[in-house]
Amino acid sequence: MTSVILSTATRYMLPLLLLFSVFLLLRGHSEPGGGFVGGLVAAASFAFYAFAYNVKQARRALRINPRVFIGVGLLIAVSSATYSLFLGKSFMTGIWTETEFPVFGAIGTPFIFDVGVYLVVLGVILTIVFSLAEGEQ
């Protein structure tokens, strides 16, 4: 399943798609988007890579076992949620920075949570796709 056009295109598309996915993640709080869709797009970029080359190379490009993304993502999500407990507030209470940042306004734990979602989705899709594709190749 290797074609020159596809593999070349993929090589250039990978960073673009990743960038787009981060964009979706960041704007999720104010526009349609969010960690979930962002994670999907990011996963898609690596999945394309796997189809264009093969799973081994995709794994190499990713550097980290996708399962780790799942664990880390969940950990980030639960940490962002637990943070408020230490401030004596309810579990998962949103804690926001005072200052507004130029692109996406105030940063708060819900945003961190969304990052966790993004990573989990990325890890999940890649785990599934890679292990399925390895079966096929």
């Binding site: 709080h29 104010s30 349609p32 926001w96 105030a106």
Partner: peptide, 8 residues
Amino acid sequence: AHGHNVVN
């Protein structure tokens, strides 16, 4: 909750 997108 600092968000415009209510669903999100």
